[in-house]
């Protein structure tokens, strides 16, 4: 019984001074899901020949069809343009362009964890061959669960209906 009070004090002060782990929820990964236009609850597998992302020379190629993926936002600009070369059911190639704007916000987590950039207020600046009913915005902030690296750990930003 007599140790309860000192234990309580230690716990209280430990809580005050402990920096804790560095749980960083910042990311520049945009999470996009593909759904069927006829039934928005069902996933649709899309095959892409390539995805060109502005601000880098890297061209993304996907080996197999996918129903969702992560794409990076340009960390050195307030906008990023994506050019999707999509394989249509008749095997012809369609080109969809999507240009996104966003705010980058620097945030100090702690002295030991450092500072990170948070991407907020995501908005569509330009799109070609995609009409407004084909894109649904879910979350305008890019965030991830720091305890997981699975694709589901990233906040869903857009659903695109094909």
């Amino acid at each position: 019984m007599k140790y309860i009070f000192p234990f309580f004090l230690c716990t209280l002060f430990a809580g005050c001074f402990s920096e804790g782990d560095c749980l960083i929820s910042a990311t520049n990964q945009l999470h996009i899901q593909f759904k069927k236009r006829s039934n928005s609850k069902l996933d649709t597998l899309i095959t892409f020949n390539s995805i060109v992302v502005s601000g880098t020379d890297v061209i993304f190629t996907l080996k197999s069809s996918t129903a969702n993926f992560l794409l990076p936002l340009d960390t050195n600009s307030d906008s990023t343009q994506f050019i999707f070369k999509r394989v249509k059911p008749d095997n012809s190639i369609a080109t969809d362009t999507l240009q996104l704007g966003y705010d980058r916000q620097g945030k100090v987590i702690t002295k030991d964890c450092g500072a990170y950039t948070y991407y907020r207020n995501l908005k569509i600046l330009k799109k070609t061959s995609l009409d407004s009913t084909q894109i649904k915005i879910f979350n305008t902030n890019l965030l991830k669960d720091p305890n997981s690296s699975a694709i589901t750990a990233y906040a869903l930003n857009f659903q695109i209906f094909y």
Partner: peptide, 20 residues
């Protein structure tokens, strides 16, 4: 003011120092 090098971003972009 804050000057830092963001280390979380995807490696395909060269990390530039931020000054905000």
């Amino acid at each position: 003011s804050l000057n830092y090098l963001d280390t979380t971003s995807n490696k395909i972009y060269v990390a530039a120092p931020y000054q905000v």
